[in-house]
Design a protein around this nucleic acid. Structure first.
Lengths: 227, 227
DNA sequence: TACGCGTCTTGATTTCGATCAAACAACGTA
DNA sequence: TACGTTGTTTGATCGAAATCAAGACGCGTA
């Protein structure tokens, strides 16, 4: 990761809204800001690799970071996807362990980094930081449980429907919105091959879903719930 | 959960070895012991259900607790399995949220329960407790990532091989051991139907694995690694 | 506007595991 | 020991998605 620097006004702003720092008291925010380093990561570049000693905590400011595991043959399985405001779950390794997966920029990304030892130092003096970390990791654990169950219980079109419903206003009316990233990335996040995602979209046409490029139009969310 | 009581000598002993309390300082251990309540849960009984407001933290003293999610048709997908010494991950909801999955006793279990509000109180005064929780949940998140990737990358016989290798001494020699629970439970943990587990075991016979009841004999771990 | 590359879609095939159904084994109890 | 319950195995079938292989589309650049 290159172009390391102290956070400027924009970065501080984003960090403050990040859900991570948002729940902290002012002193803890200041302490974290103090040790924050900003850096950017070009597309496709690795942030860290599975098995490396974990020494940094990462928070995404912009772009998307894909977290995946490899099998011996080099095939990849995505386990998580982090966007603006997200703390990268696999980075929260306060006990001097190793990263549990590989993190790669799915598109050019801006990140805040924190030295893990210093984070632990601060957390051992300021319980609000430690508690915020507990909450964040718990929420991510719950999300991981949901993915695991979804994989085992739902078909590809069902998973895609749920994704669409989660990402559009819940007022029960027709809507359009833009996918935040490439379809191949979405496919990975849903545990599908890109072809399977494509087929799912084409099947969902019969249920009022129209897709052109990254633009999605949903005719009737109620219909979608019954897929 | 019935027969609530204060922890006796045996329970205190188990709790102290639980990996949860093991990493705490003496004062925090004392504070947690203070609020601990012991109870037992008959087989098949629910400890909590997905979506219920979370008010208790649970630690398994003996037996096994199965964590699963339901789909609308009532089908179940196991997302985690907790044994003696484990803190139940879905219970760590310090911010007044809800349980992310349903917990059920897979066999008669003895549990320690802690009121979540009081845990949060203690954690906000004693950072070692909060940090211990961060570590535990992080480890469980990593385990969940592993399951997710395993599901997507490996076949049933491969997943079973990995399980067996993880649960036998790593010295590369032939060994026998006893499965800690029923095969149907193992099947769920591995994301398989019981039939699929059975077929995987029968295929693994060609690779030096013999199973009689819960007794497993592994002829050569090296062979198993190459399945 | 045309070109070229990367992304996405579509088709054909194959593999894996779920599901249904039935036989079988293990175990506690009367 | 006979019985019933519960857990496990085996067989047959089916369906969902991965994979392989082309082709179409979209988009930025010249």
């Amino acid at each position: 990761m290159n172009r390391l620097m102290k956070p400027g006004a924009r970065e501080r702003e984003t960090l403050l809204n990040s859900g991570f720092l948002a729940s902290l008291g002012v002193e803890s925010v200041a302490a974290m800001m103090e040790i924050a380093v900003i850096g950017n990561l070009p597309a496709r570049q690795m942030l860290f690799r599975e098995g490396e000693p974990a020494d940094m905590l990462h928070c995404v400011l912009s772009g998307y970071i894909r977290l995946y595991k490899l099998d011996p043959d080099g095939r990849e399985a995505d386990v998580s996807l982090y966007g603006p405001g997200d703390l990268i779950g696999a980075s929260v390794v306060l006990d001097g362990g190793r990263y549990a997966a590989t993190a790669q920029a799915a598109e050019p990304a801006l990140l805040a980094r924190f030295d893990l030892r210093r984070v632990r130092d601060i957390a051992s003096r300021r319980p609000d930081l430690a508690l915020a970390l507990v909450n964040i990791v718990s929420v991510q654990l719950a999300a991981s449980f949901t993915s695991l169950a979804d994989d085992r219980l739902h078909t590809a079109p069902q998973r895609v429907s749920r994704y669409l419903l989660d990402h559009c206003p819940a007022d029960g009316k027709a809507t359009s919105f833009r996918l935040p990233y490439q379809k191949s990335l979405l496919a990975g996040k849903l545990g599908l091959a890109p072809e399977a995602l494509s087929r799912a979209f084409s099947l969902l046409r019969n249920h009022g879903v129209n897709v052109r490029g990254r633009l999605v139009h949903i005719g009737d969310p109620e219909v979608l719930k019954r897929v």
